[in-house]
């Protein structure tokens, strides 16, 4: 059974990553510290701003903190399972390591994207959730069974990041310096760190469609706090599907190009 085999492979990847991380125990602390500082800086930015204004584009201070909590845990989820794999993606192609993956009897993308698992980042998922829980009440989040929705929205946030990151990484097949495009991803990623309603119309439209960075945390936080219109739900589904197919096409063409260039 194929699924069982994939699960078994993933299990060994987890085990191996665990062994690897146990070697670098300091890494555990530094990775945690890095994210705590990052969270601190983002919280500080809004603390400074809310020291000057009571409400920002309809968001109160606790609501923005709740949003940030959702943002951090959704991002940490991505960091845990995918971040480093995408970092190494360009090396895979540029240094030809993909050649080896292509000879394996499982999907090369599965191997490429499951190799690095940052187990310590699980702590940051908890930290983000902690912040969300802390400010849930003052932000006006109903809680109760709706915490299950949080889990679902976190997964949607992570999926968005995977699809976007993939679409930015895949250009490595065409240009040698795709890191410039990858860096552009991180520039745009900044848009995810603020609620989408704060943005002027043009940018807001952009991050809800062509570059759906708002799906990472903005849309989830809004859905949890106030619920969304049906058109907005449809938009999320449609855009994500479109990105999935776009990525699939890019991967196929890129791979064909890679194979004809290297053989």
């Amino acid at each position: 059974m194929k699924l069982v085999q994939y699960a078994r492979i993933y299990g060994i990847q987890v085990k191996n990553n665990w062994v690897r991380e146990a070697v670098y125990r300091v890494n555990f602390l530094t990775a945690m510290a890095t994210d705590v500082i990052w969270i601190g800086v983002e919280l500080l930015l809004f603390t400074v701003i809310y020291a000057n204004v009571p409400v920002l584009a309809g968001w109160t201070k606790p609501q923005v903190y709740f949003f940030l909590g959702i943002f951090f845990s959704s991002d940490a989820l991505f960091t845990t399972f995918f971040q480093r794999n995408f970092w190494n993606f360009s090396d895979l192609v540029n240094k030809g390591e993909l050649d080896i993956l292509l000879t394996k009897p499982v999907h090369p993308l599965f191997l490429a994207l499951s190799r690095w698992i940052n187990i310590t980042a699980i702590f940051n998922i908890a930290l983000g959730l902690g912040i969300a829980i802390q400010f849930a009440n003052p932000a006006g989040f109903a809680g109760g069974w709706k915490w299950l929705l949080v889990a679902a929205w976190l997964l949607i946030g992570m999926t968005t990041q995977i699809l976007l990151r993939f679409a930015f990484s895949i250009w490595v097949f065409w240009t040698e310096r795709s890191w410039a495009i990858s860096r552009l991803y991180y520039q745009f990623f900044q848009f995810a760190t603020k609620p989408d309603t704060m943005y002027p119309k043009a940018i807001r439209y952009l991050i809800l469609t062509a570059l759906p960075f708002a799906f990472i945390s903005s849309i989830p936080a809004r859905a949890l706090l106030h619920g969304l219109k049906w058109s907005e739900y449809a938009n999320v589904g449609g855009v994500l599907l479109a990105f999935f197919f776009l990525n699939a096409i890019l991967w196929q063409t890129g791979l064909r190009r890679y194979q004809s260039a290297s053989s």
Binding site: I9, I12, Q13, K15, N16, V19, R20, E97, P105
Partner: peptide, 21 residues
């Protein structure tokens, strides 16, 4: 080009290959 993991003993990498194949 290496397929083995830099930070792991060889057996662990072979273990993964066992699962893959």
């Amino acid at each position: 080009k290496a397929q083995l993991w830099w930070d792991l003993p060889a057996v662990d990498a072979f273990d993964l290959l066992r699962a893959i194949y």
